[in-house]
Write a protein that binds this DNA or RNA. Structure first.
Lengths: 345, 345
DNA sequence: TTGAAAGCGATACCAA
DNA sequence: TTGGTATCGCTTTCAA
């Protein structure tokens, strides 16, 4: 591969000037610029990025940490981040933590070893306290997940409100025996806790209370089956209960789809016997006619990258924590019970 | 950030020896090794990867080119490649071509600028002739797609046979008016062409012929709607035809799912009125009880990375082109027509 | 506008 | 086993 030296040899022009041409420095005469460009084309020259990185202390690369790519939510998030990254001449490194604390921590070495200029964190396996020390090595922006401390650069959706409007919708449709199945992972993120708060708020407004036996954790991540299978198991479990809920509010469209699929097998009517709400509004929700809470993935990706770029450019970010609204998408899985609202409000 | 110099200052030991410790060179006394390690821990030292890249001419990073991440087939492929890459201390750069020839070409600059040690190409927008020149800048391995020239390092599935067994299955189940909907993208890859050959072979064996009006291109990529929507449109179109096929062999599970969804709306019985076969065997195929052709994604990812690693290590790869078998997964979307095989063989 | 030279942070050859 | 030094390829300051 040709280097600057080869251009120097060919043109007799100094490396400084050649470098100036490469970097579009205006202080170069037109004639030299032309000769350098000619030589570069002739030799098929491209600057060596390792040398540039070393010299400039900049990689034009960022890492996106996520639990796993085969979860379509994260694949879409990565897709959106990539759109904007490409526009900004940034490379993207995929980093799957696979729900592993240690793996997650290891990825932060990328910042120390200067392999990336910054990190987007879309899942949180460790406590923020254990991660925050890495911010001294480079900027980190949280996306989707969020921690208690709101002085962290974060972009997240208002899951509390999302859970609230979902629950409220169920109640208004006449369902008041509502089960919840959310990722209970409140060790690190406030996400699960916030959802529960939102649900409770809606229930309280209608004079209802949460029943402990109707709260189910999403165990698909820990037990290594798919979220769809998780939904199937959940419904089977629920059907063995004596006092059954008449609606299930789930933490993902996959779980919701699993419930609907298993219902068909068990002869359970959706929404006649049991209503279902998903989360995210992925393509699968539409396919299964599943009421869900839409996540603004496009905006989350865009704003997250923007924050990161601002931090890399040393500009302080305008807002540290950005909260985005969540939206209810009504489909047939929560159609009003034929008997009309069972509840007197 | 501390550098080797800081370790030298702190310990009085030369940079050469420090470097040896970093790289586990055995020719270092235990005492010095201990002192260097102590200092490294004390200063929280990590080698600067840009410097290592420059010096070693190696990045430990590879790029994976694919059309788009939101296609679950590619998300899964990337996931599998990543598993093995992580084991080999390789970073992965995501590169979405978004079905764009120019974008694809631009990604090969990564090889020229030494940002990656090699490239995995899982889609092909340009002709191989236009890409092959880049092999002089670093190794490139084709995965999934394949070109006419079989001296290219490639891992691909036997789509000809896949199409053959799928078609044969349909015929044996009593369907002999078979429509095909495959990506017609044979400008660059042999994939589409091979599928057609496989279909024709099966038809011929049973004395049937292909009907031109029953061959449909998959236009979702070009027309910018989802593959599921593509399936829906396809069925609507077919239902307007006078002479309708009684089975549809599609190029993806998404298209198959779209057909099944639209059938429900139109009151078309699957498989009673029309049978459907998908391709890939993604989770969605199981959900929709869709007969499909299973792709060995796990093996494809593994073997592809192996080939690339061999090429990077300068070992010639043992086999240039590896062909993997495709497997029929029978589900209810192709259940034998109740009237029994219509065909006298 | 141009060029000489220092330096980014590591590795490896050579000599001791 | 150890250390001095050249080198990887580029950018940037300084002086001309």
């Amino acid at each position: 591969m040709p280097t600057i030296k080869d251009i120097v040899k060919l043109t007799g022009i100094s490396r400084s000037t050649v470098s100036r041409v490469i970097n579009n420095d205006p202080h170069v005469s037109e004639e030299k610029r032309r000769r350098v460009n000619e030589a570069m084309n002739l030799l098929n020259y491209t600057p060596n990025s390792a040398a540039q990185r070393l010299r400039n202390q900049k990689t034009n690369t960022i890492a996106v940490l996520m639990p796993e790519l085969k979860n379509p939510f994260f694949a879409h998030l990565l897709d959106k981040i990539d759109s904007d990254a490409t526009e900004n001449n940034l490379q993207l490194l995929v980093c799957q933590t696979r729900y592993d604390k240690l793996k997650e921590l290891q990825f932060f070495e990328l910042l120390k070893t200067k392999q990336v200029d910054g990190i987007i964190l879309s899942s949180l396996e460790n406590k923020w306290e254990d991660i925050s020390i890495f911010t001294s090595f480079g900027p980190i922006v949280l996306c989707n997940e969020y921690s208690e401390k709101d002085h962290i650069p974060t972009v997240y959706a208002d899951h509390r409100h999302g859970a609230y409007i979902g629950t409220k919708h169920l109640i208004e449709q006449g369902y008041h025996k509502i089960a919840f199945c959310f990722d209970e992972d409140d060790r690190n993120s406030k996400l699960g806790k916030d959802r529960r708060i939102g649900c409770e708020k809606a229930l309280e407004e209608f004079g209802l209370t949460v029943r402990k036996e109707w709260i189910f954790p999403d165990t698909s991540n820990v037990d290594k089956y798919t979220a769809v299978e998780g939904g199937r198991r959940l419904l089977r479990k629920i059907m063995t209960m004596e006092n059954r809920p008449d609606a299930i509010f789930t933490g993902s469209d996959q779980v919701g789809a699993g419930i609907i699929l298993e219902a068909k097998i068990l002869g359970v009517q959706i929404p006649g016997d049991i209503a279902v709400i998903g989360f995210d509004d992925q393509e699968i929700a539409e396919m299964f006619d599943l009421t869900t809470i839409r996540q603004p993935i496009r905006e989350m990706g865009k704003l997250t990258l923007q924050q990161l770029l601002d931090l890399i450019a040393q500009k302080e970010v305008s807002q540290r924590a950005i909260q985005l609204p969540l939206e209810l998408v009504v489909r047939n899985s929560t159609k009003a019970n034929l008997l009309g609202p069972k509840l007197k409000v």
